[in-house]
Design a protein around this nucleic acid. Structure first.
Lengths: 236, 236
DNA sequence: GAATGCGCAATTATCATATAAATCCGGCCC
DNA sequence: GGGCCGGATTTATATGATAATTGCGCATTC
């Protein structure tokens, strides 16, 4: 617990613990501990407790009012796209429903990003995408982690858009892919289709937004169908 | 300055001032004031200053280390999709480039959302979309604010997806639309095309994702072309 | 008996001060 | 020249006190 981790001070560790607990649903909407209780519980001073609560407030997870106390905000107010909140969401129990929602989001983002990349990508950005594809090929031959390579490919495309809002979604795609691949591997020994990824790259290189978009979309639709099928049999 | 605004305490007001200043670029990467300087500058105690800095840290705008001081994070680390950060971005000087990036983002989000809405929308969500379209029609006859109605329409579709990640982007779409419409009105007396919006609604009602997606896309592509044309003449 | 206003109490908000920890910088030692 | 050490600066944490906010119960009034 008291491991000395650089950049991991007491406040930060409180934020992590509380954030994870809140997202997991450990606290009901009412009855969140008071400052005094939290301080006692974590053996921290009120300053630290208050600063941690403020950080969680900034992420939309908490709200505090005098006399009333601190309480968990309804889920609609959470900043789901905040990297921390997203990570906490991932670290809690696996959920097919959540994975589907992640993936539906990717379906909006990535095809359009690929199209935009076909328009905007410069030499360096293109090189990065190529490098990631190379890593995927190497991983297929047993050299390197296929998961890392796959993620690098998708992230490289987001960056190639040169649009900061798409770049912002790296975290989401990263998260979605990690649990996605964990899931698809469980279903079948499927490895990421290198051919499909190569098609995306070729379209971007050819400066063909429409084709890039279609190719990227195909990859995700494939995954989404798997997930929907799995949910069907789960609930059936 | 000391207006008693509910839910607008000293810490919050500090967060607003600093957040806006940072996003506007008033502070260079190095040379951000120390806690002591900030406290003096805003006539607040160190606790308040520290808590404000923590909230901005939680949004990715700042970072603090002992001895080194507090400094502004590079723009890539900002949580651009945080509602507050987004709002500060809007409140700073108008920029065609930023508007284009907002709109490119909408191009990823909204068509897919419309498609998803065609699959998932329930009675209530559909009614909300219809209601917004009604408001747009009324506004065209001079009854009510057309901007509000237009935004309500787009937001209603995001909610109709029943996917919390799309719902999360209400703020972005809201922001983008507000400056977008301010801009398009400046270019020409164009009012939002009710026909185009109606096409989206009909497709959703018909449970036709493909058509809904296409129709939503058409609306945004239209705006994007305007913006790109304007940027062309600006830089030419 | 119901509505209204008042005051108590609980909780966060703010302030003030003190101490600890981290780390940059300069100088010293080898 | 390079590594080690100490001082100084800044944030991190602790602590205690006071102010502001507001839910809730009680009394008061009609």
């Amino acid at each position: 617990m008291t491991i000395r981790t650089p950049g991991m001070n007491l406040t930060h560790s409180l934020v992590e613990s509380l954030g994870l607990a809140i997202v997991t649903g450990d606290y009901q909407a009412v009855g969140f501990p008071t400052e005094a209780e939290l301080s006692a519980q974590f053996a921290a001073s009120r300053s630290v407790t208050r600063e941690a609560v403020k950080m969680l407030t900034a992420k939309g997870l908490l709200t505090a009012r005098p006399r009333y106390g601190t309480s968990v905000e309804p889920e609609e107010r959470w900043n789901l796209l905040d990297p921390d909140v997203l990570r906490w969401l991932l670290e809690r129990k696996f959920s097919l429903r959540l994975l589907q929602q992640f993936t539906e989001m990717r379906l909006g983002i990535e095809p359009e990003a690929a199209g935009l990349a076909a328009i905007n990508a410069d030499k360096e950005a293109l090189a990065e995408v190529r490098r990631a594809l190379g890593q995927m090929r190497a991983a297929a031959d047993g050299e390197g982690d296929p998961l890392v390579a796959d993620i690098a490919f998708h992230v490289a495309i987001l960056n190639a858009t040169h649009n900061p809002f798409y770049a912002e979604l790296q975290e989401l795609v990263n998260t979605a892919l990690r649990i996605s691949i964990r899931f698809t591997n469980r279903i079948q020994g499927r490895t990421a289709s290198i051919l499909a990824h190569e098609t995306v790259l070729r379209a971007i290189e050819a400066r063909d937004p429409e084709a890039a978009s279609q190719a990227a979309r195909a990859i995700i639709v494939d995954v989404l169908d798997l997930i929907r099928a799995a949910r069907q049999t789960d609930t059936a």
